[in-house]
Amino acid sequence: MRPPPSPPARPSSRLASLAFVALLSLGSATACYLLRGTEGLREGLATAADLALAVLPVMVPALFLAAVIQGGVGRERIGRLLGADSGLRGLLLASAAGMATPGGPMAAFPLVAALAAGGADRGALVAYVSAWALNGVSRILVFEAPLLGPEFALLRFAASLPLPVLAGALARRLPLEGRVR
């Protein structure tokens, strides 16, 4: 089985999210000025500067690490790992593959459809999606660790590590029909 090629990220959606953050920033700055005057603006910028000092020193190594993981884990490799392996082993493999899958929903969900066509059971598919969403290593490295601090990211990662396996085991027992279209 060969998963479909990864669709390229749409530059328009990137621009839209940038515009959204710009609006959020402008709106909150305006509200700060109206409620607290220039003192409020100064306080907000001081907090932002503190954050930048915490974020920037780990930015380059974190992004490089994400790039290496992305390059080392090909989509074909994930497909081969996940065949129709069932039992606890299948859930563990699916969780590991989900954590290693980079990119947003446009990249991950077509892969799920391909895995389903290749015979992966619904428990493995649920474990895969949960692990990608909850513990996707590239999102943690690129966004969470720089913005909230590596300590927080490590804490949340450790606390969530076993959970996709639980979700997969739960999905196998739920009386719902989990057929992928």
Partner: peptide, 8 residues
């Protein structure tokens, strides 16, 4: 853009 937003 995000850091000033967080600060404000």
């Amino acid at each position: 853009l995000a850091l000033p937003a967080a600060g404000f």
